[in-house]
């Protein structure tokens, strides 16, 4: 799985961090999401899909 995060679409809700804390974080200064791992391991895949689902800005794109 490959993850693309469009930071300029991000609205800083942090939903992705709640869903997949191993793959996403938020910047302290403005809350914009940060991609920790653009190619997460299989065991994170379900969390990452959930993160993409709940992102209110549709800023997370996945390719399997």
């Amino acid at each position: 799985m490959k993850v693309i995060l469009e930071q300029d679409k991000c609205v800083a809700s942090g939903q992705c961090v709640v869903a997949a804390p191993a793959v996403f974080d938020q910047r302290d200064e403005d809350g914009i999401a940060v991609l920790l791992d653009p190619a997460p391991a299989a065991e994170s895949a379900e969390d990452v899909r959930h993160a993409a689902d709940v992102c209110p800005a549709l800023a997370i794109q996945l390719t399997e």
Binding site: G14, V17, V18, Q26, D28
Partner: peptide, 8 residues
């Protein structure tokens, strides 16, 4: 207010 991460 301009602290999204901390608010969450």
């Amino acid at each position: 207010w301009n602290m999204p991460k901390q608010a969450r």
